[in-house]
């Protein structure tokens, strides 16, 4: 365009409207007005604080056994009672949040990263790439996590890393599917055509042009997956494939104590179960809130 001055006669357009909140501001605003989200966040933050600092404020060492006081019911000195080795259940429940809150979020992040990249690629290229990859993903999704976990443990041995990789990779296809459908809608928009008309490469178009616009569904899916990941970690620990003793992990504790429910020692299992339930509910409330905030 030439540098000649524009005719002064054309009316000057007005200033941009900067008073309006940005879309993200809008989302945060409605998040913090949502009771669902705030309740979920409160529960989640409670467990995060327990995971980070729990060991400093619990009354007993969660790993120290005290055989004389084994299996005492809940009382003033042991609020949640003790287990068969005499370990304080309350301290174990509080500190037991640590492993699950490391493993589940890391698995979810792995699933999100892998799923997003995969979803962008199949949604953007469509055609044969989509047809093949989507069928593979569907086949993968049909296999229960536990079977995949068994295979992985045989191959890699039991460790937290294995659990993260197993859960991360088995959740990735679900996230990929969500991202794919968002990308399919997005790629029909004219800004994608405009990018093609600048000879932009596929990577630029996918990650710079399209990705920022599909973040909302990704965030929603991620929070939902986090809930499932917590469940999956607990399940694997319970089955002995996940977090290993002597961790006070909830799934592990339930697994080693559930035989004693029949003997009336309900407190060795109930509080761990409630902890898992509360964390999953908390995360799901957060997920509901996030979903609502993006879909208002």
């Amino acid at each position: 365009m030439s540098a000649t001055d524009t005719p002064a006669s054309l009316p000057a357009p007005s200033a941009p409207d900067t008073t309006r909140r940005s879309p993200w501001g809008e989302v945060l605003h409605s998040l913090f007005r949502s009771g669902t989200f705030l309740t979920g966040l409160f529960i989640l933050l409670f467990w995060v604080v327990c995971a980070l600092f729990g060991q400093h404020f619990v009354p007993y060492d969660p790993l120290e056994s005290d055989i004389i006081n084994s299996l005492t019911p809940p009382a003033a000195d042991h609020w949640f009672g003790t287990d068969q080795l005499g370990r304080d259940v309350f301290s174990r429940v509080i500190v037991g949040s640590r492993d699950i809150l490391t493993v589940a979020p890391l698995a979810t992040i792995l699933a999100t990263l892998a799923g997003t990249a995969l979803g962008l690629v199949i949604g953007y290229f469509r055609g044969i790439v989509d047809d093949i990859v989507s069928r593979v993903l569907e086949a993968f999704m049909a296999i229960p996590v536990v079977i995949i976990a068994l295979l992985a443990i045989v191959a890699l041995g039991t460790s937290k890393i294995t659990v993260i990789v197993v859960i991360g990779l088995s959740f990735a296809p679900i996230i990929a599917r969500t991202v794919r459908s968002a990308v399919l809608a997005e790629r029909e928009l004219d800004y994608v055509a405009a990018a093609k008309l600048r000879h932009e490469g596929a990577l630029h178009t996918m990650f710079v042009e399209i990705l920022p616009n599909v973040i909302p569904p990704i965030l929603v899916e991620t929070t939902v997956r986090l809930g499932y990941a917590i469940f999956a970690v607990a399940t694997l620990s319970f089955m002995g494939f996940g977090i290993q003793p002597p961790s006070p992990d909830w799934g592990l504790s339930i697994s080693s104590n559930y035989g004693m429910i029949g003997g009336g020692f309900w407190w060795t299992v109930l509080f761990d179960a409630l902890a898992i339930a509360s964390l999953v509910i908390g995360v799901n409330l957060v997920a509901d809130g996030v979903h609502g905030a993006f879909n208002d």
Partner: peptide, 14 residues
Amino acid sequence: IVFQNPDSALNRSH
């Protein structure tokens, strides 16, 4: 090209 709908033609994240 100048598209019909600027909401679709301009990337809303940029």
